[in-house]
Amino acid sequence: MTRLKLADLADEKPVRITVEISAKLHRELGAYAAVLNGGDAKGAPAPERLIPPMIERFMATDREFARIRRGTKV
């Protein structure tokens, strides 16, 4: 089993934003969703559902961001 950095996708009340991504990135997100779904594209989460948890994971593991944030009240 592949260990991915992204775990489950929590259902929380979303805040809508608009983000433009490249077609290549969209295809990669679709491929990532399929792997997350055990290799099956059918029933995989939509690529747009992956973006928020990926950003959260990135920010949670960014040591420099955490260091600076601890030093200031952001």
Rank of each mutant, 00 (worst) to 15 (best):
G71E: 13
V35S: 01
Y32Q: 02
K42G: 01
T18R: 14
E64F: 08
M1H: 10
K42C: 01
R27I: 04
R27F: 01
T72H: 12
E28C: 00
E12T: 14
F65H: 12
R3F: 12
R67M: 09
E28I: 00
A34W: 05
A7G: 15
R16Q: 12
L29Q: 05
L36M: 14
R69F: 09
V15P: 04
L50H: 07
A44G: 05
G39R: 01
E20Q: 12
R16E: 13
M54Y: 01
K42N: 08
A33C: 03
K13D: 14
E64C: 03
E56A: 15
L9I: 15
G43A: 10
N37D: 02
V15C: 10
L50T: 06
I55G: 00
D62R: 05
Y32R: 08
H26T: 03
M59H: 12
P52D: 11
E28M: 05
A7K: 13
A66S: 12
I17R: 15
I55M: 01
A31F: 03
F65Y: 14
M1A: 10
A31H: 09
I55S: 08
T72I: 13
P53D: 03
P53E: 10
F58Q: 07
A66V: 05
F58A: 04
E20K: 13
P47T: 05
V35M: 06
L4D: 03
G39D: 02
L6T: 04
K5N: 14
D62Q: 10
A41H: 00
D62A: 11
V74T: 12
L36Y: 06
T18K: 12
F65W: 11
E56I: 09
T2K: 13
A23T: 11
G43E: 07
D11W: 07
V74C: 11
M59T: 14
P53V: 10
D40Y: 04
P14D: 10
R27E: 05
I51R: 09
S22K: 01
A44S: 15
I55A: 03
K24P: 02
A33I: 02
R49D: 12
R67D: 14
